[in-house]
C-alpha cells in the first residue's frame, strides 16, 4: 500500500521520535510511506490566523505535489498538519471559487484531489485493529492509558468524517489491541492550548492542566497522543502545571506509534522513548516492557 507521507516541521524538529516510530510501524505493517518531495509547511496556526488564502494555498501545494507523485492518499501524523491539509482539501472540493484562485496561485489544474487521512485513521481503517493485534509480540499488559485525541483528529466532524467527535474510540481500541487497558475519561477531545505554547503560556497551563488532572483522576499511568503540539504542551509544561495546581504530576506523554512499536518488539531506544521529558522508563520497567 503506497501512501504519500507529509511529516511536517515538528516531526523533523522537536517530534523526531514521532517520525521515527511512524516510519518503523508503517513499514512493519506493510504501508509504504513515500515522503512528499519538497513539501512545505502546512501553514499552521499562523497562516490561517492572518491570511486565509495563504493557508489554503500552502496546504494545496503539498496535495498537488502528492498528486504529481501519482498518489491518491496523503497521511500526516501531526494533527495540526492534518487539520490544515484536510480543511484545504475540503474547501478545494466544496468551494469552486477558492479552488480556481488557488490553482492559479500554485500553478496547477483543478481538481487537487488526493484524499487526506490522519495516521491513526489510516491505521485503523486501512489495516484494522485485528491485523494490528496479530503483530503484537510484547503485549502492553498492565499499562493503564488515557487515549487523548485532542481537537483536530475528529473536528470539525463535517470535514474530518472520522470517529465520534465527542467520545472517539479508535485509539482506545488500537491500544487495547496492543494489550493495554484504557481509562474512561472526560477530556479525550479537549484542547491543550495548541499554538499558544510560547506566546500565551498561561492558556496552555490552564487548558493543559485540566487534561492532566482529568487523566490522573481517571487513574491513568500515561497519556497517549497523536499530535506533537499536544505532546509538547502536556510534557514540557507538566512541571509548571503541577506547581500551579499544587499537585505533583508524573504522566509520561507518549506517541501512540511509540507504543505500537514497543508491542511489535522494537526497543525503546529505536522508538526514541528517551526523548520524552517526563521519563517513561519507570513505568515501562514496572510492567517488564523496558
Amino acid at each position: 500500500m503506497n501512501v504519500a507521507y507529509f511529516p511536517g516541521c515538528s516531526l523533523q524538529g522537536m517530534a523526531s521520535e514521532y517520525d521515527k516510530s511512524t516510519r518503523l510501524v508503517c513499514k512493519h505493517l506493510g504501508i509504504n510511506l513515500e515522503e512528499i518531495e519538497d513539501w512545505n509547511c502546512c501553514g499552521a496556526t499562523a497562516a490561517h490566523s492572518l491570511n486565509h488564502l495563504l493557508s489554503v494555498s500552502l496546504a494545496a501545494r503539498n496535495l498537488d505535489l502528492a498528486k504529481k507523485m501519482g498518489l491518491h492518499l496523503v497521511t500526516a501524523p501531526c494533527a495540526g498538519c492534518y487539520g490544515r491539509l484536510k480543511a484545504a482539501s475540503y474547501e478545494l472540493k466544496n468551494n469552486s471559487e477558492v479552488a480556481e484562485k488557488v490553482s492559479q496561485i500554485i500553478g496547477t489544474s483543478v481538481p487537487i484531489e488526493p484524499e487526506v487521512k490522519n495516521l491513526l485513521q489510516l491505521l485503523v481503517e486501512s489495516i484494522g485493529t485485528p491485523a494490528i493485534a496479530e503483530k503484537v509480540v510484547h503485549p502492553l499488559k498492565g499499562l493503564k492509558l488515557a487515549a487523548y485525541y485532542g481537537c483536530l483528529l475528529t473536528r470539525p466532524n463535517q470535514v474530518t468524517q472520522f470517529d465520534d467527535r465527542e467520545m472517539p474510540v479508535s485509539m482506545d481500541l488500537l491500544l487495547q489491541a496492543l494489550g493495554a487497558e484504557t481509562v474512561n475519561w472526560a477530556h479525550k477531545t479537549e484542547c491543550c492550548g495548541g499554538g499558544y505554547a510560547a506566546s500565551e503560556t498561561d492558556i496552555v497551563i490552564d487548558l493543559g492542566g485540566q487534561i492532566l488532572e482529568s487523566a490522573r483522576a481517571a487513574g491513568a499511568d500515561a497519556i497517549v497522543v497523536a499530535c506533537p503540539m499536544c505532546q509538547t504542551n502536556l510534557d514540557t509544561r507538566q512541571k509548571a502545571i503541577g506547581a500551579k495546581r499544587g499537585i505533583k504530576y508524573h504522566l509520561p506523554i507518549i506517541y501512540f506509534t511509540q507504543l505500537m512499536g514497543l508491542a511489535f518488539g522494537y526497543t525503546p531506544r529505536q522508538l526514541g522513548f528517551k526523548r520524552l521529558l517526563t521519563e517513561p522508563f519507570s513505568l515501562l520497567k514496572a510492567q517488564g516492557l523496558a
Binding site: 490561517h48 481537537c151 473536528r155 463535517q158 484542547c191 492550548g193 499554538g195 492558556i203
Partner: peptide, 12 residues
Amino acid sequence: LWTCVSCQLCVD
C-alpha cells in the same frame, strides 16, 4: 481574537 485556540468545538 487573540485567545481563540481554533479548537473547532463551536462549529462542531
